[in-house]
């Protein structure tokens, strides 16, 4: 084994400052190892650039980035409360508008702050047509408080408030179909994205920000701790979420689907479940477990059918080659 050539002493702080990308989220934040949300937030800001103001709902992202006096944010950032991020962002946007400033406004929230407690404010923001990009970092449960189920938690998933036991197979209710609800607001741009597909994610951010009016991004962001997978598997798990059909990658304009990332090789939901302890009980040898897993599979199948996700022919791996590397990193340009 030849080790990579030794670069000698390098001033890493200088090198860090010279990175050819905008780093909106700085290192030294306290996210868990392999945190999908930390990665997602940095990618969103990389695409958005420095001329932004971010309003952030209460949650992991807020906590692990801003233990006063430290902050990991390199952008203007404000946290108010859990349920009001869309309204705070609305206010910022209204102020910028009347002041004639062109800075973009982003609202960041987890699934709790989006699907559940922050939903009303979000709906209001969309209805009032504020020029804000709302990004929901969807890790499918209340992770900050210790893995409680949310409206986004998928059917059958274990959480501390939807435990699996003798009479229950995890969460008893379906994941809220938020995208359809958002779509019903008729906003100009809404999309889903996944950290496993960073270029797709970033192009969606750019599209959202170049669209006047409210836009919405549902960004699937695995939580190694809450989902029960190894910290190195964050991307692999989320890739399976997409490739199984459980989390379709879509783009909508005015409620109409205008883009879908096709799946060339559909992976069984079982493969996705096998990597995560939150679905471990569904892999047991019992009729209830079997039914639970089959139910999830049926939901994935229905997504594939509903959105026409099957790729045909010798096409690229996905609709835009978004997960294909290029020598020299040009795919990230």
């Amino acid at each position: 084994m030849a080790s990579a050539s030794d670069p000698g002493p390098v001033d890493l702080a200088e090198l860090r400052a010279a990175q050819p990308r905008f780093s909106g989220l700085e290192s030294g934040h306290g996210a868990c190892q392999g945190c999908g949300q930390a990665l997602a937030a940095r990618l969103v800001l990389e695409a958005a650039g420095p001329d932004v103001i971010v309003a952030n709902a209460t949650g992991c992202l807020e906590i692990f980035t801003t233990p006063w006096p430290l902050s990991a944010w390199n952008v203007a950032w404000i946290h108010s409360l859990f349920e009001n991020v869309a309204a705070v962002a609305s206010g910022i946007e209204a102020a910028l508008k009347i002041q004639g400033r062109n800075t973009k406004v982003l609202a960041f929230a987890g699934d709790g702050g989006t699907f559940d407690i922050g939903f009303q404010a979000l709906s209001g923001m969309l209805e009032r047509n504020h020029d804000v990009l709302f990004v929901c970092f969807d890790n499918e449960a209340y992770m900050n408080t210790g893995i409680q189920r949310s409206g986004s938690t998928p059917l059958g998933a274990w959480t501390t408030t939807s435990p699996a036991g003798k009479t229950r197979q995890g969460k008893r209710h379906l994941k809220k179909d938020l995208l359809t609800i958002i779509a019903a607001h008729g906003i100009p741009y809404a999309a889903t994205a996944s950290v496993a597909y960073p270029s797709d994610l970033r192009s969606k951010v750019r599209r959202a920000l170049s669209t006047e009016g409210p836009s919405f991004l549902l960004l699937h962001s695995p939580c190694p701790l809450g989902w029960g997978h190894d910290s190195s598997l964050t991307i692999a798990v989320d890739r399976l979420a997409v490739e199984s059909g459980l989390f379709p990658l879509l783009e909508l304009a005015r409620g109409q689907v205008i883009g879908r990332m096709a799946i060339r090789t559909v992976r069984p939901v079982r493969e996705y479940a096998e990597l995560q302890s939150r679905f471990g009980h569904l892999l047991a040898d019992s009729p209830e477990a079997h039914e639970g897993l089959e139910h999830l599979q049926a939901i994935a199948d229905a997504n594939i059918e509903r959105y026409g996700l099957l790729a045909s022919g010798p096409e690229p791996r996905d609709s835009e080659g978004a997960d294909t590397v290029r020598r020299g990193g040009t795919r990230w340009a």
């Binding site: 705070v88 206010g91 910022i92 404010a121």
Partner: peptide, 20 residues
Amino acid sequence: VSVESEFSAASVVLGAASAG
């Protein structure tokens, strides 16, 4: 900004004043 609740009314002025 004709909001959908007083909660949002207060939140909007919080955001707007914070933005100057």
